[in-house]
Design a protein around this nucleic acid. Structure first.
Lengths: 143, 143
DNA sequence: TACAAAACGTTATATTGTATCTTTTCGTCA
DNA sequence: TGACGAAAAGATACAATATAACGTTTTGTA
C-alpha cells in the first residue's frame, strides 16, 4: 500500500469519525509513513522545518497526540519514538519487535498474547486500559 | 520480607557474583525498596541529597545502571521510573501492572506470556534480548 | 607498596516533553 | 453572510529526563 493510499485511508477514517486530519497532522503522518522506521518527535520536527520557518515542539506533539488518539500511529516507549500503524481501521493489540541493530520495527498483532495478558491482569484484579509490549532483539536480516 | 532482609539478600547475590554493592548503590536500592512505588531518577536524587551535599544526576544513573544489570531493580518504560525487584535471585520474565490512579505497580512473572512472546518473535525471525511488558490500568482497590 | 581497574565527583550539555498565552482557522447558526 | 464559539496552530518559555567528558578517589591485587 502506497504512501498516498495510506494517507487517503487515514483521511477516510478520520472523516468517518468526525475527526479532522488537518494538513499539519497529515504532514506528520506522511513523514512517519515515508520514514519506514520510528522517528523521535524532534526528528519529525526537523523534517517539518525543512525549508520553512521553524516550528516549535508543541506543534509536533499535538499532531502526534491526535494521531495516537485516532490509532494512526503508535508510540514506542523504549525508544521514545513514533511509528505509523499498518492497520488503523480498528483497535488492535499492538506488539512490537524492535531490532537493536538496524532499528527497524515490526508490528505484530497477536491476539493470544493480548488475551493472556488480559487474563493475568484480571487475576490481579486489574482493569487494563493500555498494553505496552515491546521486544528488543536482533532481526533475521541482521543476524 | 523486610527492607533489611532485602538489602542483605542483594548483598549476598552481588558478592556471590563478584559484583560490588557499594554503599552508594545500596543506598539507591534502599530508597527504592522503602518507596514501595516507582521513583524517577530525580526523585531518588532528591532523596539522596537530603541533608547532604547535593549529588549530580550521573551518580544516580550509574547506580541504577548497576542495579539494573544485577536484576535488583527494573525500569518502567512507560513511567521513566525505577522499582525494586521482588525476586532478584534469577532472571525472570517481568511484566508490570501499573495503576494509573494510585501509581502502585504489581510485578507479575508469567512464564506463559513470556513463552508466547518468544514464540511470536521467533516466527518473525527475531532473536529477543529484552522483553518489555507493561499494562496500564486501574487496580482493584482504586475501582 | 605500586599498579590497574572500578567507582565516584563535577561540570556541562543533550534530549524529550509541557505549560501558558495569543492568534488564526473552521464550522455553525441566526 | 457575518458573528460567534470551539478547535487548531503559533510562540515563548521552561520542566523533566538522560548522557558526555574528564578528572579524582578508592579498591583489589600482584
Amino acid at each position: 500500500m502506497s504512501t498516498e493510499e495510506r494517507l487517503e485511508r487515514a483521511m477516510r477514517l478520520c472523516t468517518g469519525r468526525g475527526a479532522r486530519l488537518t494538513p499539519q497532522r497529515a504532514r506528520v503522518l506522511r513523514i512517519l509513513i515515508e520514514a519506514e522506521r520510528p522517528l523521535g518527535a524532534y526528528e519529525i520536527l526537523a523534517e517539518m522545518a525543512g525549508g520553512q520557518r521553524a516550528l516549535a515542539p508543541p506543534t509536533v506533539y499535538r499532531a502526534l497526540e491526535f494521531l495516537l488518539a485516532q490509532g494512526l500511529v503508535h508510540r514506542l516507549e523504549t525508544l521514545n519514538a513514533f511509528i505509523d500503524c499498518r492497520h488503523p481501521e480498528r483497535p488492535h493489540p499492538a506488539q512490537f519487535l524492535i531490532c537493536s541493530a538496524c532499528g527497524r520495527v515490526v508490528e505484530i498483532d497477536d491476539e493470544a498474547i493480548a488475551a493472556r495478558l488480559l487474563d493475568a491482569a484480571s487475576q490481579s484484579g486489574f482493569a487494563p486500559s493500555r498494553k505496552v509490549v515491546e521486544v528488543i532483539g536482533v532481526c533475521e536480516g541482521c543476524r
